[in-house]
């Protein structure tokens, strides 16, 4: 065992240890740092994703300030908010915005409620619970394109399943998708069918994280099942509700594909035009690129107004 008094190889005792770390050492440290050495790993995907997502968004915003349309290349000389003014003044835009809002809110709320109900139902010692859950979630695995075909047939006024049901009860057949007042609710119904299973899965995961003894304690206290759920369990599912709601809203914003596939054309059924369909129609059918870009920007703002508070909340919770 060497004693501490042996000669010191380098000078490092006392005040003189404030040795000047030259830039070479610092550079070497920087090049050796985890930031630099891990950068190929996250950097390549980040650049690819960054160009696609943020480059795309940025360029889209720039285009929305031009009056780019048709086959001429865009001119970036006179940038203005003309397209936004046109959109806000347009009746079609306002109708699409209202429809979008109605779709977003009612689809999300109904899916959450149905999902919660299903989760509680399945959480109650049901046999074959996993198999049932798999089936409830099955529509989620299907493409919008496929489900649109299925519901087109379900809603068919001549011989669709819903027509059969309605006529069985003695009513006249209803043209669900042809009636502008019923088309949007019909679409919402179909989307709820497709995605309430998702809300259920999220709630089931939330329910499973609540310890069983809370149910038992409530039972011992003599609370009824419904009361137990309403007063004790549901309030604890706030986190699940928030995250499920956000994801459902994102699904709702992607409803374009469903609406397009329903009719196979740019114009969705009357009364179901939303910002996404309007945008694609204006841009890709009529070649009004700048106008479409402006609508897309506003759609993005709508999406961000949902996401930003959620992400901020997650960040503050430290769960990001």
């Amino acid at each position: 065992m060497a004693t501490r008094d042996t000669t010191e190889p380098t000078n490092q005792s006392g005040v003189s240890t404030d040795e000047v770390v030259d830039w070479k050492t610092k550079l070497r440290y920087f090049l050796n740092s985890d930031f630099v050495r891990s950068s190929p790993y996250w950097g390549i995907p980040f650049i690819l994703m960054g160009i696609a997502v943020y480059g795309g968004i940025g360029y889209n915003i720039v285009i929305s300030f031009t009056d780019y349309s048709g086959l001429q290349p865009p001119s970036f000389s006179g940038l203005d908010l003309e397209m936004y003014r046109t959109a806000l003044a347009s009746g079609a835009f306002r109708e699409a915005a209202v429809n979008n809002f109605v779709l977003l809110v009612s689809f999300t709320v109904i899916s959450l409620i149905l999902g919660l109900f299903l989760a509680i139902l399945l959480d109650h010692g049901i046999r074959y619970k996993n198999k049932v859950q798999t089936i409830y979630l099955l529509p989620m695995a299907l493409s919008f394109v496929v489900t649109a075909q299925l519901w087109l047939w379900m809603f068919n006024p001549d011989s669709g399943v819903l027509t059969v049901i309605v006529t069985t009860f003695g009513f006249d057949p209803i043209d669900w998708l042809g009636n502008p007042r019923l088309a949007l609710p019909a679409v919402i119904f179909a989307l709820v069918w497709q995605f309430s299973g998702y809300a259920m899965v999220v709630y089931l995961a939330g329910l499973q994280s609540i310890p069983d003894d809370q149910f038992e304690a409530a039972k011992v206290d003599g609370a009824s099942t419904i009361r137990t759920y309403l007063r004790i369990i549901v309030p604890q599912l706030k986190e699940s509700s928030v995250s499920a709601a956000v994801v459902l809203m994102v699904f709702a914003l992607k409803a374009f594909t469903f609406l397009y596939s329903l009719v196979g054309q740019y114009r969705p059924p009357n009364g179901t035009d939303i910002l996404a369909t309007l945008m694609v129609r204006q841009a890709f059918k009529f070649g009004k690129w700048a106008y479409g870009a402006a609508i897309a920007t506003m759609l993005l703002l709508l999406a961000l107004s949902v996401i930003a508070p959620y992400l901020a909340y997650q960040y503050r919770q430290g769960s990001l």
């Binding site: 380098t10 490092q12 240890t17 040795e19 770390v21 440290y29």
Partner: peptide, 13 residues
């Protein structure tokens, strides 16, 4: 500063 065996370690992985 941190030294092991008299060698400055701050910047070493």
């Amino acid at each position: 500063n941190l030294y092991i065996d008299g060698d400055h370690m701050n910047y070493r992985v």
